[in-house]
C-alpha cells in the first residue's frame, strides 16, 4: 500500500496557528500529538482539516527504543489524535526518552546493536497493532554516540524497515547534525536506506556552538541542511517535506521564505 503525496508543509504549533493558516504554499501540516487533545481539537486544526489540508500526527514520547515496555496510554493518545485529524499516517522517532524511572524529556540515541534493534522492533510491532494508520520512524540528532555500535545508522534503519514494514521519516537537519557531531556521511547514510519506503522529510534550523551543531528548531534553516535535502532529492522525489519550527518564531515572511527555499530544492 502506498502513502499519499503530501507536498510542502509546516509543523502546526498553537503559538503560530494563525500564521500556519494564512501562509502561502502549505500543502500539509504536522501536529505534535503530546501537545493537543483529540476532543475538542484546537479550532485551527479543524479549520485546516475543513480546507482539506492533511494533518500528520507526530509523537515524541513513545520511547520505542526503550528497554522498558512502551506505555500503552501514550500509543492510545497518538491513535486518538490520528483519528481526530484523520491523519494519513503517524510518526515517531528511533530513540528512547527515559530509563530507570527517569524521564529525559527529549530524544536520546540508541546503541546500534542487535540487542537494541530487537527491542525496537518488538516495541514498533506492538505500537503498530494499536495505531489506525501507517507509522513512519525518524532518525534523530545526537550529540553523543554509544561506544559499541555494530551497525551503521543507515543499516540500523534499513533493518528496522525490513523487519517491521514501517515507513521512514528522514530528518535532513538531524542528518546534518550527526554529520557534524558524529562524523556520519550523509551520502552513505542515504545510500543505505530503502528510500522507496520514504514517507516524508523533516527540515529544521539550528545553530553551531564550537564543534557541535545543535538542532534547535529555533534558528533559521542553514544552507547546509538544504544541501542535504538536495542530496536526498537527487536520489528520490520525497512524497512530502515539512519545516519544523518550535521556538523563537520569526515574522511570517521568514517562514514563507524558508518554505519557498524548500520548494525550490524539491522541484529542482
Amino acid at each position: 500500500m502506498g502513502l499519499p503525496t503530501l507536498g510542502v508543509g509546516i509543523g502546526w504549533r498553537s503559538e503560530i496557528d494563525l500564521t500556519v493558516e494564512r501562509l502561502p504554499g502549505v500543502d500539509f501540516v504536522e501536529v505534535l500529538a503530546e501537545n493537543v487533545s483529540p476532543d475538542p481539537l484546537p479550532e485551527s486544526l479543524r479549520v485546516l482539516r475543513g480546507r482539506g489540508v492533511p494533518v500528520v500526527a507526530h509523537a515524541v514520547s513513545l520511547s520505542l527504543g526503550g528497554a522498558e515496555p512502551v506505555d500503552p496510554r501514550r500509543v492510545a493518545h497518538l491513535a486518538a489524535v490520528a483519528e481526530a485529524v484523520d491523519a494519513p499516517l503517524v510518526s515517531e522517532h528511533v530513540a528512547f526518552t527515559g530509563a530507570g524511572g527517569l524521564d529525559s524529556g527529549h530524544l536520546l540515541p540508541l546503541p546500534r546493536t542487535r540487542e537494541a534493534l530487537d527491542v525496537l522492533v518488538r516495541n514498533v510491532r506492538a505500537a503498530q497493532q494499536d495505531l489506525p494508520v501507517p507509522l513512519a520512524l525518524e532518525n534523530i540528532a545526537a550529540l553523543l554516540e554509544w561506544p559499541d555500535g555494530e551497525l551503521s545508522e543507515g543499516r540500523f534503519l534499513a533493518e528496522l524497515v525490513e523487519r517491521t514494514d514501517c515507513w521512514l521519516l528522514v530528518d535532513v537537519a538531524n542528518l546534518h547534525a550527526n554529520a557534524t557531531n558524529l562524523g556520519t556521511e550523509p551520502g552513505r547514510f542515504l545510500d543505505e536506506l530503502p528510500l522507496e519506503r520514504l514517507a516524508y522529510v523533516h527540515v529544521a534550523g539550528g545553530v553551531r556552538h564550537g564543534d557541535l551543531y545543535h538542532d534547535t528548531h529555533a534558528h533559521a534553516v542553514p544552507p547546509e541542511v538544504l544541501e542535504v535535502l538536495g542530496e536526498l532529492c537527487s536520489r528520490v522525489s520525497p512524497p512530502g517535506v515539512l519545516l519544523e519550527r518550535d521556538d523563537a518564531y520569526p515574522p511570517d515572511a521568514e517562514l514563507a521564505a524558508e518554505l519557498a527555499a524548500i520548494r525550490a530544492v524539491v522541484s529542482r
Binding site: 528497554a67 527515559g98 530507570g100 527517569l102 529525559s104 536520546l108 540487542e115 527491542v119 559499541d148
Partner: peptide
C-alpha cells in the same frame, strides 16, 4: 536486561550527575 541497565546508567549520567558510563566520551555526555 543489559540494555535496560545501560540505558538507565546513561540517563542517570545525563540527568542526575551519575558517573559517565564506560566507553562514552565525557565531553559529549
Amino acid at each position: 536486561t543489559d540494555l535496560a541497565a545501560r540505558q538507565a546508567e546513561l540517563v542517570r549520567a545525563l540527568l542526575a550527575d551519575g558517573p559517565v558510563p564506560a566507553g562514552f566520551d565525557p565531553d559529549r555526555v
